[in-house]
């Protein structure tokens, strides 16, 4: 447990202090939300209709940031070899990394989204659902991302490859997340979509670390 805590703390500090850190995802997320009206026009009704989807697309893209950093450096500078020697199973090491990534991307986005909601004329009733949906969904995004990041360690400059691998797998999050917010906005009960979103997130949290650990183990030659 102490090893886990130490590793988690190290990754968290690295995420916060290195190259923009947590502010990077937040700024990227906010920029997408700000750019959308510039492209779509300032019509409040249009923005209101598109808002739930735009927030979730922004979340999908913003959680891509920082994924490359998640394991790439550890592979390059040999830290990964030390991880292999540690008593902690590789799966738990990945869980620590996912947690650190989520705290510096998913959670920040979740906290930022309610503040940005007025920019897309999102109705006030939908804001708690937006926050809740991001809170439920973003851990899943970080988990799927971890698997792709681990696969990407063999690729030189894998940033774009990473996006192509991750985005199709994240479709369920986009669908359930955006539907929940849209339902809340039109006065319907969002709980069905939220439950499915939570289910998708939980599955991702199981599959993600397993796949990522397998990918990192396979890299040993």
């Amino acid at each position: 447990m102490r090893t886990f805590a130490a590793l988690f703390w190290r990754d968290l500090v690295l995420n916060i202090r290195s190259s923009g850190g947590a502010a990077l995802s937040a700024a990227f997320f906010a920029l997408i939300v700000v750019l959308a009206p510039l492209g779509l026009g300032p019509n409040a009704a249009t923005l209101k209709a598109l808002g739930p989807g735009l927030f979730w697309i922004a979340a999908l893209l913003a959680t891509l940031l920082g994924l490359e950093r998640m394991v790439q450096q550890d592979v390059e500078d040999g830290t990964l070899d030390l991880f292999r020697l540690s008593p902690l199973p590789m799966e738990l090491i990945i869980v620590a990394k996912i947690l650190a990534h989520w705290l510096t991307s998913g959670l920040i986005i979740t906290l930022l989204a309610p503040l940005l909601a007025p920019l897309l004329s999102l109705s006030f009733d939908a804001v708690p659902t937006l926050t809740l949906s991001l809170l439920l969904g973003t851990p899943g995004l970080s988990s799927i991302g971890a698997a792709a990041a681990a696969l990407g360690t063999s690729v030189q400059r894998g940033g774009m490859v990473l996006a192509i691998l991750v985005l199709p797998l994240n479709v369920p999050f986009l669908i359930f997340g955006a539907s929940a917010v849209a339902a809340a906005q039109s006065g319907n009960d969002p709980s069905q979509a939220l439950i499915f979103l939570a289910a998708a997130s939980l599955i991702a949290m199981v599959v993600g670390p397993l796949a990522a650990a397998a990918a990192l183990r396979l890299n040993e030659d």
């Binding site: 479709v171 369920p172 669908i175 359930f176 539907s179 599955i203 599959v207 397998a214 990918a215």
Partner: peptide
Amino acid sequence: ARAARILALVGVVNVPIIHFSVEWW
């Protein structure tokens, strides 16, 4: 080959979930 194996397996776990979510959509 090693990386592709894992991607294919993660993909096949996800295909039913994606299909279901899109169906629901």
